[in-house]
């Protein structure tokens, strides 16, 4: 179910004095099973862009094609689009409202009109996917910890069983443990074949998970390509108010000191392998 965006422009408050163009002339295509990172400074238009992908915002001009069909053409049910493309908002825990965790996760499937049994199966499946203890289901979501509520909220989207999952800053405001768990869940979801689009300010997260990265600056797409390519371009990232992941910067420092390590290293594991290789070459590996 590829998503194709062409020449998308969005202007808020069009025709008034406070007109703001949040997105201008953005085009890209996302294939099935991709893991795409969307990065950019605050106010670069990331949130506006993703709200176009499931029809929450209507483009001022340009088109959004899902499965080759323009989602704003006549006869297309946006509800069906939203069923295929799940969007998890930033701080999703702020959208929970039901009396029990179960009911909150079931909100989506119930809206889609599934039978009681099907709803139950979906809630269970969603809980499994995000690693939520089933004993929490009868509890009130307002009693849970921040990381747990966020998982409830993500499960609420997963219970719709979308083909594409879009997450806006899913780890913002979580402690390191909660962050790692959520990221691992997302990684597993991608491994089951889901297309994932991750919006994040955390370059380490994006570098670790995403194969492809899109960079937005003031509403225009300034880079779209492999993660390895963009994260080695330090100056480019700095000019967009971004920075490479910590490990990539470390490798650069080592290179400046004359180490013959690769620069396009994105994860701690890769960095470890590179450094060990180099140490072995220098014949000091045994000492460590």
């Amino acid at each position: 179910m590829p998503i194709e965006v062409s020449n998308l422009t969005h202007t808020y408050m069009k025709g008034t004095t406070s007109e703001v163009t949040a997105i201008s002339g953005v085009s890209f295509r996302i294939e099935d099973g991709e893991f795409v990172g969307l990065i950019g400074a605050t106010g670069s238009g990331k949130s506006t862009l993703i709200q176009h992908l499931n029809g929450l915002l209507r483009p001022t001009s340009g088109t959004v094609l899902v499965d080759g069909v323009d989602i704003w053409s006549k006869g297309v049910s946006l509800k069906q689009i939203r069923r295929k493309i799940g969007l998890v908002f930033q701080y999703p825990e702020q959208q929970v409202f039901e009396e029990t965790v179960y009911d909150d996760i079931a909100f989506g499937p119930r809206n889609l009109g599934f039978s009681q049994a099907e709803v139950e199966a979906r809630v269970e499946k969603a809980c499994e996917l995000v690693g939520l203890d089933k004993e929490l289901l009868p509890r009130s979501p307002f009693e849970l910890s921040g990381g747990q509520v966020r998982r409830v909220a993500i499960a609420g989207i997963l219970a719709i069983q979308p083909k594409v999952l879009i997450l806006d800053e899913p780890t913002a405001g979580l402690d390191p443990k909660g962050r790692m768990e959520i990221l691992d869940n997302i990684k597993q979801l991608h491994e089951t074949g889901m297309t994932v689009i991750l919006v994040s300010h955390n370059m380490d997260d994006v570098a670790r998970l995403c194969e492809r990265v899109m960079v937005l600056e003031k509403g225009t797409l300034v880079f779209d390509g492999p993660a390895r390519e963009v994260f080695t371009q330090r100056e480019f990232l700095y000019s967009k108010q971004l920075r490479p992941p910590e490990v990539t910067l470390l490798m650069e420092k080592l290179r400046q000191r004359g180490w013959a390590v690769r620069q396009d290293v994105l994860t701690v594991e890769e960095a470890y392998a590179e450094i060990m290789k180099e140490l072995r070459k220098k014949g000091v590996a045994g000492a460590i």
Binding site: R82, Q94, Q95, F107, N111, I157
Partner: peptide
Amino acid sequence: DRIMKAQMSRGAD
């Protein structure tokens, strides 16, 4: 506006 959109993403009407 944000909550409304979030619920619409979950199929709310």
